[in-house]
């Protein structure tokens, strides 16, 4: 009986140890996975929130649009566009679109960066006609779109 008793005890200990080990492994795995998942979600959330917040903070003003018959002395027709950053963060203007993307002007990188309170001007060589109004959209690197309607 004593011998039998002893063997029963060993079996329970082994089972208990196995259960404990298994539970620990499962628990650690679960915790590691959930921690990783939460971290990923947090990072995504932080990134998304920051991005959206930055987009919200972008505030451009299309200060002046001058339709020129000639750029330079006898150059082609063009449009002088002055964009002012009236927001609180720096903005990188990448594109100017006319007439809902039918004409796209890629802003040179050097001209596209506008610090808060500063302005930039670009001069795309685009032909225009008197009286024909068009939509003009200024697009930033973060994806903000500032649209106005201009008429020569």
């Amino acid at each position: 009986m004593r011998h039998f008793k002893s063997r029963r005890g060993i079996s329970s200990a082994i089972v208990g140890a196995m259960l404990l080990t298994g539970t620990t492994i499962l628990g650690v795995t679960l915790v590691a996975w959930s921690h990783s998942s939460v971290l990923t979600t947090e990072f995504g959330l932080a990134s998304s929130a920051s991005s959206k917040s930055n987009i919200l903070s972008e505030y451009l003003s299309i200060e002046n649009v001058w339709f020129r018959h000639h750029i330079g002395v006898n150059g082609p027709a063009g449009i002088n566009i002055t964009i002012s950053n009236v927001g609180k963060i720096g903005v990188n203007v990448t594109q100017i679109q006319f007439n809902n993307t039918s004409i796209v002007y890629n802003v040179p990188k050097a001209l596209g960066k506008i610090l808060p309170g500063n302005f930039t001007w670009v001069q795309p060589q685009i032909s225009w006609h008197n009286g024909s109004s068009t939509n003009m959209s200024v697009i930033t690197q973060r994806g903000s779109i500032f649209t106005t309607r201009v008429t020569p």
Partner: peptide, 24 residues
Amino acid sequence: VTTVGYVTFSLNVLDSFNQSVLAK
């Protein structure tokens, strides 16, 4: 702890975003 941390972080992010919206 993880849950509380996540919720706290989320609320902070939300608050920060809300501040941006309010500022705009």
